[in-house]
């Protein structure tokens, strides 16, 4: 049997990680976390998470960057802000989760291959850049094409229902002044 070490040595931790998080808008108070667990108890997703929000914050504070970014937790957060309004230390936990998501996308660290949420996030972003608006039906089709094509078949009944009730669009929504959107993008990318 292979002997594996579960605990990280001090020099393997990323000590710049907690500082980075406190510099993100919303993360100012993260180092003041008292580990009370209010966030974990109010979070409707915590029972599905590999690390509860409280634990994730402790891990981030200690510099466990890889573990935090590869955690399923950050992708289960659906931004309901329940933790944020109850946190006694005013940590904007939802913003912290967004920051973790961004960093994970930036570094390409995902819980699994073809993991759908970052793919959807990118599709969403690219569509806005191109058209200025989203067309839901196309977004769903494109997501399936990039993740699991077979999921489209499972969606047929749902699509049929939307079609029957006139809630599905086939045209692509676009704004007129797309040039303006492109200028906004360019200014920030420069």
């Amino acid at each position: 049997m292979e002997v594996r070490r579960k605990v990280k040595y001090e020099n393997e931790l990323d000590h710049s990680f907690p500082q980075w998080i406190s510099d993100v808008p919303g993360g100012e108070h993260i180092r003041e976390c008292i580990q009370c667990g209010t966030c974990s108890s109010i979070c409707p997703m915590s029972i599905y998470m590999d690390n509860t929000p409280r634990r994730l914050i402790a891990m981030a504070d200690a510099g466990f960057k890889e573990e935090v970014l590869s955690s399923f937790t950050i992708w289960l957060c659906s931004s309901c802000y329940a933790c944020l309004v109850t946190c006694p230390k005013n940590i904007k936990i939802t913003d912290v989760m967004y920051a973790f998501k961004r960093r994970a996308i930036e570094e390409g660290i995902y819980p699994s291959k073809k993991f759908s949420i970052p793919i959807l996030a990118r599709l969403f972003t690219n569509t806005i850049r191109k058209n200025g608006r989203i067309t839901e039906s196309w977004l769903v089709v494109k997501l399936a094409m990039k993740t699991r094509l077979s999921s489209l078949i499972a969606m047929i009944p749902l699509g049929a229902n939307l079609l029957r009730t006139g809630r599905m669009r086939f045209d692509t929504e676009k704004i007129k002044n797309r040039k303006q959107i492109r200028k906004i993008f360019k200014a920030l990318e420069a």
Partner: peptide
């Protein structure tokens, strides 16, 4: 234009 919903915040905050 689209508000970006919760998705956009996961890709680029300033944008």
């Amino acid at each position: 234009n689209c508000c970006g919903a919760t998705m956009y915040m996961s890709v680029d905050e300033n944008m």
